[in-house]
Amino acid sequence: MIPLDQLPKGKLAVIEDIDSDQLPLKLIEMGCLPGNKVSLIQKAPLNDPLYLKIDESHLAIRKESAQHIFVRLSK
C-alpha cells in the first residue's frame, strides 16, 4: 500500500484506505472512497498538484491531500 502521491503516472490503482480527518468531505463525495479505482494522469511541476482520475471524476488535488489517501497498485 502506498500513499497516492507516490503512484507512478499512468498506473491504475485501487483506493484501500483514506484518512478522512485530513480530507475535505467534498473530495470524498466526488468519489474518493475505498474500493474505487484511481489513476494519476499528470503532475504539475514540482509534483504538485496532481491530476487524477478517481472513479469517474477527473480531479486536481494538492499533494498534501494525496498523502492521506492510500492505494494498492492493480496488476
Binding site: 475535505p24 498538484p49 477527473h58 486536481a60
Partner: peptide, 11 residues
C-alpha cells in the same frame, strides 16, 4: 482555515 483544493477537470 484548512486549505482545501479540489478542482474538477471538466471535459
Amino acid at each position: 482555515s484548512k486549505s482545501y483544493f479540489v478542482v474538477e477537470m471538466p471535459n
